[in-house]
Design a protein around this nucleic acid. Sequence first.
DNA 1: CTCGTGATTGACGCTTACGTAAACGTAAAG
DNA 2: CTTTACGTTTACGTAAGCGTCAATCACGAG
Lengths: 138, 138
Amino acid sequence: MGCVHNIRVPVETATWSIAELAAEYDVTLRTIRFYEDRGLLTPERRGTVRVYHPRDKVRLGLILRGKRLGFSLDEIATIVDMYDAEPGEEGQLVYLLNQIGTRRAELEQRRRDIDETLEELAEVERRCQADLRSLRNR
Amino acid sequence: MGCVHNIRVPVETATWSIAELAAEYDVTLRTIRFYEDRGLLTPERRGTVRVYHPRDKVRLGLILRGKRLGFSLDEIATIVDMYDAEPGEEGQLVYLLNQIGTRRAELEQRRRDIDETLEELAEVERRCQADLRSLRNR
DNA sequence: CTCGTGATTGACGCTTACGTAAACGTAAAG
DNA sequence: CTTTACGTTTACGTAAGCGTCAATCACGAG
């Protein structure tokens, strides 16, 4: 199907069960199903069973990264959906570009916050180590 | 008090009402009181009224930055409390240093996540702009 | 005295992001 | 056929982080 020439390529690209995905990303089945409920994942169904394709796996990775960044699932949804948005018409594209701008601003603010915090932590650390030394030199 | 020499300095360092703090940081009174409930803030009381000192203001700033970074209030509590921890004994110091290590690792992971996301957003952006151009050149 | 302003303490409600059974289906292995 | 492993849906529970009254107090202005 789609492979006119008789070149043998693995048409059946990898798929995963829900348990495999859960193990790989260290989340529960409940979590994965919940993300589907929220429209973030749309696995294939073989009968009633969920079958996850590379696309789903990538999206799960993106979702979890978004979570680590402290975004809500709603925000993550808009972000993740940007990745595989169809070219679409001009309005769509402009909207997308705006979204990107917004997200970038947020992320850059977060990075500034992180850098500040790291510097302050380093300072606290120096104080701690100094205190430790003065304790041990007695 | 503590000022043995008769040098005139403003002993009454600035204080703020709950409403002033709320306005300055753009949060609600409810939020500020909630943070107090959770032990994150400990304003002075004049009668029943809360009076916030510079220390409280700084802590509120730290809390909100923690929130922007996606930390839970519990995590924020441990982080913020590290800042004004007393020197203490060796065990305490070692514990603090461990905490700092953990937080730093988390923050550095977050920064990596941010950088990856920013790069990917930039790519999506380029695609969008290319699509826009090809739309307008028709 | 009364009114408006700004503060207080409950207490209930709501959303998010799942946890946690309960009850059931299916398919391969013993 | 029964067990075991793995999957399913439905549904109630929960912790976090506030929003939103309601009732009350304190105080200076008029």
